[in-house]
Design a protein around this nucleic acid. Structure first.
Length: 493
DNA sequence: CCCAGCTTTAT
DNA sequence: TAAAGCTGG
């Protein structure tokens, strides 16, 4: 006779929150007792896309979650093992017939893991309930009716977290279970330059954005320094599910009714929608992680230069804005959208390196790494979708425009601090005499430019535009437009 | 990804 | 002068 208590397990993945969490909501709705589970899985911890900063962010999120759960006399069971082993172990304590989690639009590693898990659930007579996340819909053939579906998703009020008395597995029971499991330490460095993980911190960013920072959203969005305060900075909290896109959208919507800066809020909301679009694209085209979505670009062969790649990663290309961006990203985990585009443009066009060589460094550095945005954006910026305008950014033009006083540059490339502004933008223009005057030697104190901007720009542009006339590229462009957009106009057909 | 608004190019 | 290309947001 089976006397084990029955629980619904909620498997937390990249949705580290209680509020507006459909998996938790559905698990509670059944009336059964609910156990929240997070597992640090070796296959992910060892994966090259992730880095220490992500694991720390997750740990901080879990600590925050547990603080919130204290009032319910519960906590998340946090283990360090693969998910199947974790569930297997839990089955010695509970009868588990239902597991709840969100549909994850992840990388190949999580996709494979989920397929295995599905098989495991089937063999163990467990119902695995996966809910829609971020409005992204699984199994679509094209975008027919997609906007309406997303509208419907956003229209629903965020789901409340309302367990009845003692509905969550109590702390004492979880402590007992932990005795026989591999429990990771949740301690994280106290002082870092990274945004701190956790819903309560995410809420603080949201509050300060909506109460004071958002009016300059549009004017500052492309400026490397000003964007850091005029943009919301909630991306890591969205990426790791501390905040739901829907609740943010709703807050913006309500604020708009009384706001004097409606345009700024509209722009912000529009970008929230684009976030959903890109994740949807990746959901429907998961091979994008490794190869260009436009198969015509598979034959684009670029020669790999480790020397260029190291210079780029460490911020030693000799182009101050590129270097400042890369060093700032490495230190803080954040860069505004335009500057991300610029460093990818420099890597793929000026250094003429395959975008695949940039993926893991960037995903490790972006605290807000979101697979569904990462790969589509990388490919688009590399000019390998066939359906978008090429964008080859000029780092000098951008620094003069967006960092006119070179303050961002001087902050992150201190070698250039003592130079006057024009030379901080273009140190390679200094004559020998001027270098002597500033006690600054190019090639010693700061690198010479590793490539020439004009020639590399032209070479990349010519090669990519030529390929765009290729038959396969054109066919693929048609296919991509048909599958991922509602637009019908086709170029060059 | 789209859109607006502008500039350049092709015929 | 319409279409295509470019740029900022």
């Amino acid at each position: 006779m089976n006397t084990k208590p029955q629980v619904n397990v909620v498997w937390l993945k990249r949705d580290l929150r209680l509020h507006d969490n459909e998996a938790i909501f559905n698990a509670l709705k059944t009336g059964r007792q609910v156990l929240l589970l997070y597992s640090f899985e070796p296959i992910l911890m060892d994966d090259a896309h992730y880095s220490e900063r992500h694991w720390n962010f997750i740990k901080e999120s879990l600590v925050d979650l547990n603080a919130e759960l204290k009032q319910y006399n519960s906590k998340v069971l946090i283990v360090q093992s693969d998910i199947i082993a974790a569930i297997n172990h839990l089955q010695s304590h509970f009868r588990i017939s239902d597991i709840y989690s969100h549909q994850e639009t992840g990388i190949l590693v999580t996709y494979e893991r989920d397929k295995n898990f599905k098989r495991f659930c089937k063999n163990n007579l467990i119902n695995w309930h996966e809910n829609i996340n971020n409005g992204v819909i699984r199994g679509l053939k094209d975008r027919e009716g997609w906007n309406e579906k997303v509208d419907a998703f956003y229209a629903i009020d965020p789901l409340p977290f309302q367990p009845r008395q003692d509905q969550l597995v109590p702390i004492e029971v979880i402590n007992e279970i932990e005795q026989n499991l591999n429990i990771p330490s949740l301690s994280t460095p106290e002082f870092t330059a990274f945004q701190k993980g956790g819903r309560s911190t995410g809420k603080k960013y949201l509050k300060s954005f909506f109460s004071e920072r958002y009016p300059n959203y549009m004017q500052h969005i492309s400026k490397p320094e000003l964007a850091r305060t005029s943009c919301s900075r909630i991306s890591p909290y969205i990426a790791w599910g501390n905040l739901s896109v829907r609740e943010v959208y709703h807050e913006a919507y309500h604020l708009k009714e009384t706001s004097k800066h409606k345009k700024a809020l509209e722009a912000f909301m529009s970008r929230l929608r684009w976030q959903t679009h890109f994740i949807q694209k990746f959901e429907m085209e998961h091979t994008m992680e490794e190869a260009s979505v436009n198969k015509g670009f598979h034959r684009l062969k670029k020669s790999i230069s480790k020397k260029y790649q190291v210079a780029w990663k460490t911020g030693n290309t000799g182009y101050p804005l590129v270097d400042a961006c890369m060093r700032c990203l490495n230190e803080t985990g954040y860069l505004n959208f335009r500057m991300r585009a610029l460093v990818v443009s420099f890597f793929t066009h000026n250094l003429w390196q395959p975008w695949q060589e940039a993926t893991t460094h960037l995903s490790q550095m972006f605290l807000d790494f979101e697979p569904g945005i990462h790969f589509p954006q990388l490919q688009m910026q590399a000019g390998e979708t066939g359906i978008n305008m090429l964008r080859i950014y000029n780092p000098v033009k951008n620094s003069l425009e967006h960092d006119p006083e070179a303050s961002f540059i001087k902050k992150w490339v201190p070698e250039l601090y003592k130079l006057d502004t024009p030379f901080a933008h273009q140190p390679y223009l200094m004559t020998a005499l001027e270098q002597q005057f500033y006690n600054f030697k190019l090639g010693r104190d700061y690198p010479n430019p590793i490539v020439d901007l004009d020639t590399t720009r032209k070479k990349a542009g010519d090669a990519l535009w030529k390929l765009r006339k290729d038959k396969t590229v054109l066919e693929e462009s048609k296919r991509i437009l048909k599958k991922h957009t509602l637009r019908n106009k086709l170029q060059n057909t």
